[in-house]
């Protein structure tokens, strides 16, 4: 356990070395937030002031929260593991007396913890100033939200882990990564809230882990899902996290055996 804490600490420190990059990322998130909030509010206005339960203010809040969380949750691509598999450095990870998946997860949680404030605060502050934010006044949604965001990081990690494992079998992952990016961005609710989807697309999304990465935590923080509903969403996140991690482990075992047997 202490080894994992060290990994989490390393994850934090590695990212804290890139302060300019964090500032630049927050800046970009904020600019996109401005555009996204305008589009969201424009659409809600065009729909007569209410769209799938969002009014202009809650719609803008959704856009800002999505921009705040994409850095820490990292719904974008990550290819560190794939690069280590390709270069054969994965053998070093296998030789360490720590479970690779647990080690990488700890490091990713450390990264997310570091990025939470620098990446989330700027869009939220700008959002509060420009459009205003509709956030609950009581404490509970934020506490549940923190749990939910943590679970979202785990689900996101478990998905990225699986995508990266394809490197055991494929030479070039760019195509796979791009398709993952497309699917996750749309279905997690980054481009528009999942609640806006036409029914068939909403059904597709419900069968994927993607809403658990962004839509669920935002629903919980905004209080759209409260009480038992929030617990259902959290339960869904836990189920996806465990399921995907277990599958990721099994696939990793198969891939690692290939490395051990064939020597890379």
């Amino acid at each position: 356990m202490s080894a994992l804490a060290v990994y989490a600490g390393l994850g934090w420190r590695r990212w804290s070395a890139y302060r300019t990059a964090a500032a630049a990322g927050a800046f970009t998130n904020t600019v996109f937030g401005l555009i996204k909030a305008a589009i969201t509010m424009g659409a809600i206005g065009a729909a007569g002031g209410m769209l799938a339960g969002y009014d202009a203010l809650t719609g803008a809040t959704y856009a800002w929260l999505a921009q705040a969380l994409i850095g820490p949750v990292n719904v974008f691509t990550w290819s560190e593991l794939a690069e280590r598999i390709r270069s054969g450095d994965i053998a070093i990870d296998l030789a360490r007396p720590i479970d690779p998946q647990a080690g990488y997860l700890a490091a990713d949680l450390g990264r997310a913890a570091f990025q939470l404030v620098p990446r989330a605060a700027p869009p939220l502050v700008v959002g509060a100033l420009v459009t205003g934010l509709a956030l609950p006044a009581e404490l509970l949604p934020y506490l549940l939200g923190l749990v939910s965001v943590t679970l979202a990081v785990v689900v996101s990690f478990a998905c990225r882990w699986l995508v990266n494992l394809a490197a055991f079998w494929l030479l070039d992952l760019r195509g796979v990564m791009t398709l993952y990016l497309v699917a996750s961005n749309l279905l997690c609710g980054l481009v528009v809230p999942v609640h806006w989807f036409p029914p068939w697309l909403a059904t597709v999304a419900a069968w994927t882990p993607f809403p658990a990465m962004l839509q669920h935590p935002i629903d919980i923080i905004m209080g759209r899902a409260a009480g038992p509903e929030a617990l259902v969403l959290l339960g869904e996140q836990v189920a996806w996290a465990i399921g995907l991690l277990v599958v990721g482990r099994a696939v990793f075992e198969i891939g690692a055996r290939k490395v051990v047997v064939q020597g890379g």
Binding site: G42, L51, A52
Partner: peptide, 12 residues
């Protein structure tokens, strides 16, 4: 993204 938005509204 455009189509999803226009699935709920007619003019933006």
């Amino acid at each position: 993204e455009v189509l999803v938005i226009f699935s709920s509204i007619t003019v933006l």
